[in-house]
Simulated assay, not measured.
Amino acid sequence: MSNPRITAVLFLASAAVLAGCESNPLQVQRSPCPAVAIPTYTGDTTLFTGSGQDAANIDVVATMTNVREACSETTESFTSDITYDVVARRTSAAGARTVTLPVFATVVQGGNLLVSKQVGAVNVDFADGQARAIGKGGARGTVSRAVATLPPETLAKINRKRKAGDLDAAVDPLSDPEVRAAIRAASFEVLIGFQLGESALAYNVTK
C-alpha cells in the first residue's frame, strides 16, 4: 500500500458497457477477500511527556506503514492476514526503552457495519542512543464465504450479455439500486490503526 493514510471507503468495481458491441466483454472483477485500509487520522500517534500537546512536550511519534495483505480461502471463509511496520522516533535517545502502542483491527461490512473488533499492542524497542526504531504488527480478518459471495442472480444482472439496439445496452448495471446493495452487503474491509483516545484523535485531526 503506497499511502497508508487513506480514508477507508467501499470500492465498487464498475463494468463498462459499450454500445455497438455484440456483447459486454468486461465483467465485474471483485475479490471476496476483505480489503485492508487504515482509517484517516489513525495511522499516526504522538506521545507527550507533559500534559500539553505541543512540540516542546513531544516524547514519541509513530507511524503505521508497509501494510501487506495475504488472502487465503477455505470452503467456509475468506481470510486476510495483514502485517505492518510501526516506525517510531523518540525525542530523547538516552537509555534503552520499550514503547508499547495500542492498535486495533476491525472487520467492517458494507463500509459502515462493524462485524468485529480486536485491540492489541505493538512494542517498539529502542536501544540506548537509538532515536528511531521499528516494531512489527499483524492482524487477521475472516469473513464467511456465503456472505462475501455475490448471489447468482446479482452476477447474472451484472454480466448479462448486451447487444446493440437493446434498450438497456448502454445502462451501467451498477445503476440498479438492488445490484449496488448486494455488492455493498458482500463487501468487507479490515481496518487497522492506532487505538487513540479522544485527545490523541483530536490532535491528529488538527495537526
Rank of each mutant, 00 (worst) to 15 (best):
D59A: 01
V103K: 07
R160S: 09
E76P: 02
R68L: 02
F11K: 05
Q53W: 08
V108F: 00
D85M: 06
A185V: 09
G141I: 14
V108D: 05
D125M: 07
P151H: 05
K117E: 06
T46A: 09
G95R: 08
Y84A: 08
A170T: 12
N3W: 10
A93L: 03
T42L: 03
E178G: 09
K163L: 11
P25S: 12
V60W: 02
V205S: 06
D166K: 03
G165K: 09
R89E: 13
A146H: 11
P152N: 10
V205C: 10
F188W: 05
T74L: 05
L26R: 08
G165T: 06
D168V: 12
A55C: 00
G129P: 05
S2K: 14
P34C: 10
P25H: 11
C33N: 05
N66H: 09
A13N: 14
T142N: 08
G141A: 15
V179H: 04
A8V: 08
G110I: 00
V108E: 09
P34L: 07
I134A: 03
T149C: 06
S77V: 02
N112A: 15
G135C: 08
A186C: 07
R68I: 01
C33E: 03
N3Y: 12
A186I: 00
A169M: 12
A139W: 13
G111N: 04
R89K: 11
A181D: 15
L174E: 15
N204F: 06
T79S: 08
V179L: 02
A121Y: 05
G110N: 13
L191S: 03
A181G: 05
V67Y: 02
R132N: 10
E198A: 15
T149V: 10
I82V: 14
G129S: 07
I158E: 04
S77D: 09
V147G: 01
V119N: 05
S31H: 08
A146I: 14
E22G: 15
G141S: 13
Y84M: 06
T149Y: 04
Y84S: 07
E22H: 14
R145V: 06
G129A: 05
P177A: 12
R90W: 10
S199F: 12
A185M: 10
I192N: 05
F126K: 00
Q29N: 13
Y203G: 04
N204P: 11
P152Q: 12
S72G: 15
P32Y: 02
R90E: 13
T91D: 06
K157D: 00
C33W: 06
V9M: 11
N159G: 09
V60F: 02
I38C: 14
N57Y: 00
V115P: 00
A35Q: 12
Q118A: 14
K163C: 07
S51Y: 01
V60C: 01
F104L: 01
N123A: 12
S14W: 05
L191F: 04
D81E: 13
R140W: 06
V28A: 14
D168Q: 11
T74V: 11
E22Y: 13
F104E: 03
A156D: 13
V87Q: 12
L150C: 06
F78T: 02
T154F: 03
G120I: 00
R68T: 14
V86T: 04
A131H: 04
E22N: 15
S175T: 15
G52W: 04
A94K: 13
P39A: 01
L114C: 00
S144G: 03
L10Q: 08
T65M: 09
S92N: 11
V205Q: 14
R140G: 10
V115A: 00
A121C: 00
A37Y: 07
